[in-house]
Design a protein around this nucleic acid. Sequence first.
DNA 1: GGAGGTCTGGACAGTCATGTCTAGACACCT
DNA 2: AGGTGTCTAGACATGACTGTCCAGACCTCC
Lengths: 212, 212
Amino acid sequence: MRDEPSHTKATRADWIAAALDTLISDGVDQVKVLTLSEKLEVSRSSFYWYFKSRQDLLDTLLEHWQATNTAAMVAQAEAPAASISVAVCNVFRCVVDPALFNIALDFAVRDWARRSGAVRRVLDLGDTARIRALAAMFVRYGYEAAEAETRARVLYYMQIGYNDADLREPMEERMRQAPMYLKVFTGREPEPEATESLRAYVEALGAANPPA
Amino acid sequence: MRDEPSHTKATRADWIAAALDTLISDGVDQVKVLTLSEKLEVSRSSFYWYFKSRQDLLDTLLEHWQATNTAAMVAQAEAPAASISVAVCNVFRCVVDPALFNIALDFAVRDWARRSGAVRRVLDLGDTARIRALAAMFVRYGYEAAEAETRARVLYYMQIGYNDADLREPMEERMRQAPMYLKVFTGREPEPEATESLRAYVEALGAANPPA
DNA sequence: GGAGGTCTGGACAGTCATGTCTAGACACCT
DNA sequence: AGGTGTCTAGACATGACTGTCCAGACCTCC
């Protein structure tokens, strides 16, 4: 999955990357200094050269998340588009393109927030910012404020729930259903071009990351 | 929150109830024999009289979830209703009435599933059954199969995401927005009676459980 | 009242985690 | 070659949790 530093030293970035990996796959509680050191094939005590403590590492992980994901989704919501359907497709890209938005990390942080008040507060700020950007997007395409707010929430929360429940549905199936989702999210008939551009995007992505 | 058995013995049910509490509030990893025994004011070793091991307890918790929540939501989806809006309101009841459906437990199990393949498989069965019931509900009110499936997913996943992101929004605010949500979920204008009946239901609930 | 099943407390062993300390390896500069 | 700063290994202290064992309390039925 990741090219291990074949036996040499481990940098601070290596520790963070390894921690991110296990945060995503196993949750915060499993981010342990011992485990990480074994993964990096390095002594556990080296960790304390780079970080004050385990908590220090955890804080760093949260900062990393904060500095990447929310900004990315807001940018997608603000991207210019010919119609609301195309605009929604732009937002969809956050859940299909790992280079744009690390959705697995988003879920790991959401998990984490459920058990830590401090993390929860940081997450709430992110959620609020994202929903505000999505509501503004609907307003730009002529929806009334109240309806825009509701549609923003349905769109955002549905993405969370969908991926939470079902990360394993094949991309092809998702694309097939896309026009119907667009209709429900926007309350309007989507133009064929909207889904076409998304399909082309996903296909280009699939070519770049061929299925395993 | 729960009336402690003031100092006497702890029954098997007590252990399960305590485990359920901490599963919900702190996650599986925090369901520890030592912690539970302290909560019950009982020796840790007593635990091993009722359960073979910690894993045995965990299995029991999952069975408990399986036997309650999914059946409840399917029942709400199948309840007779005058229109699709009323039917959707019936489903809403799952997220507002703790007596009907333990939503906090649902999230705890969802969390858990993210770190355990076995739990994941059990959860998937539940999700599939629920979505199938919701899709059938939309079909009963005249939606085409494909659209019914999509609307079922949007409704279901949105509930997950909404509660995941935002359990703290006041009930009053939720009720104010209900008609707009109904419109988005059904694609039709909701009759005033639909939300009225839900509002009455929630108020009765609020009277039963006065705000702290 | 005694016997036997039901349940509990306390002691023990084993594992795994965090964090500290010290000696030393290694690279690089002068 | 030697000194300095960077990084690592290994040993040690400490604490949390799991699971086992055994002696005994308590209840109930005979």
